[in-house]
């Protein structure tokens, strides 16, 4: 359970998050949508304290993340989280397998002899095979994203934060990713927080969708609530997203 209370984040006096409130329950898939630059990445970085909020509270499983934590407590708290970075953030000094298994060494007791099998399994979950020994520089953009995804889920943490898991992927791979996120929830009861521009993804997988606008969550309800919403911003956002998708279809 993650409780977020009145979260505020400024960058040089520019207010990005202006009092966010949300409760995310265990086993939920919670999506966050919103325009580019609205602070979605900033928000999920706050959850693992990669970005330090200016005020507000974040309580994970009853424990206040922001209150005077030392490095060890913070490190211990972060162990519960997997994080898919928007640009992948793969280690370019390591190969694909070493990237995928990187966290296992620090987060689990799994013997290193099993890493190869785990890497294969996680990569096949994201639709990749036979690339364990490639270097990161040899991967395409979409492959990087999926390797990063495999790395984020490898240790099966309790919470996984996905920053745009399907951006830059073809529809088939996107489909695979949305199945993956749902199956992680069903099989392992993993809580997912998904930042996305992909309306289809958000509508198919989410239990709730939040719309980030002017530093606040405009709406945090089920996909059905979102469709019915009378909020002008939400309506316009959905309409424009659909138009955008249609244009894509036409172009193809």
């Amino acid at each position: 359970m993650i409780e977020i209370k009145n979260l505020v984040k400024k960058y040089n006096d520019k207010i990005i998050l202006n009092g966010i409130n949300a409760d995310i329950s265990d086993g939920e898939i919670f999506s966050i949508m919103g325009p580019s630059g609205s602070g979605k990445s900033t928000f999920i970085k706050c959850l693992v304290k990669l970005v330090f909020p200016d005020s507000g509270r974040i309580i994970v499983d009853g424990e206040d993340v922001l209150g005077g934590k030392n490095e060890f407590e913070l490190a211990r708290m972060r162990r519960n989280f997997g994080y898919l970075f928007q640009d992948g953030a793969l280690f370019d000094s390591l190969n694909v397998m070493e990237n995928v298994c990187f966290g296992l060494r620090y987060l689990t007791d799994i013997e290193s002899s099993k890493y190869e099998r785990i890497a294969k399994e996680k990569l096949s979950l994201v639709g990749l095979k036979d690339i364990q020994s490639l270097r990161v520089s040899e991967l395409s953009g979409g492959m990087k994203k999926r390797v990063a995804l495999a790395r984020a889920i490898a240790s099966e943490p309790k919470y996984i934060l996905y920053d745009e898991p399907t951006t830059g992927l073809d529809p088939v791979s996107s489909e695979k990713i949305s199945e993956l996120i749902v199956s992680m929830q069903e099989k392992l009861d993993i809580t997912s927080i998904v930042v996305t521009h992909d309306l289809k993804l958000a509508f198919t997988i989410s239990d709730r969708i939040a719309m980030l606008h002017d530093g606040k969550f405009d709406l945090a309800g089920s996909p059905g609530d979102l469709k019915k919403s009378e909020d002008p911003f939400v309506k316009k956002f959905i309409k424009d997203s659909i138009c955008h998708d249609m244009k894509d279809v036409k172009n193809k």
Binding site: L50, A75, R79, G82, F91, S93, Y106, A152
Partner: peptide
């Protein structure tokens, strides 16, 4: 240069989320 590149490509943040720092 190595650490700086890792910083600007969020690889340092990734270390924090993968159980080390």
């Amino acid at each position: 240069a190595e650490i700086g590149t890792m910083k600007v490509t969020e690889q340092l943040d990734a270390l924090h989320t993968l159980g080390t720092n």
